[in-house]
Nucleic acid binder design. Structure first.
Length: 119
DNA sequence: CCCATGACCACAA
DNA sequence: ATTGTGGCCATGG
């Protein structure tokens, strides 16, 4: 009975704020991944939650640079949630990134780690 | 309350 | 390398 098993350990609202806060720290011209953000927040496997939260991100304030978040492959999986879908690629390209076939080129070099905040 | 879906990831065959 | 399955947490019908 000691295991109340709290899903997120905190209120979902706070979880979303944590995700938004971290995504907002992504420097311009760089990208991050769902899994990396999830692990940085301790979600360990809640990569899907990051994506889900980002879906709600346009309703959050201040705005969240969700276009800087891609999947593990460097693929713009969330492009369809943008309006228009090409907007995500356009934003990334305008930030100096090169994208081909919805895939970030030289992705590893532009992959930003939340750990950089410790620097 | 049960089932299905989702901007994912890891592992096994 | 590619394909299939499970797991994760939250939301919606």
């Amino acid at each position: 009975m000691a295991d109340k098993r709290k899903p997120s350990g905190k209120d979902p609202c706070e979880l979303y704020e944590q995700i938004y806060a971290l995504v907002r720290q992504i420097p311009r011209g760089k990208v991050s991944t769902y899994g990396r953000i999830a692990e940085a927040l301790g979600l360990h496997a809640g990569a899907r939650l990051v994506g889900y939260a980002l879906t709600h991100s346009p309703a959050a304030y201040p705005p969240v640079p969700a276009h800087r978040v891609v999947n593990r492959q460097g693929l713009l999986t969330g492009r369809h949630q943008f309006d228009p879908p090409e907007q995500m690629q356009a934003l990334l390209e305008s930030e100096g990134l090169r994208i081909i076939d919805h895939q970030v080129q030289d992705f590893a070099a532009h992959c930003w780690d939340p750990e950089e905040l410790l620097n």
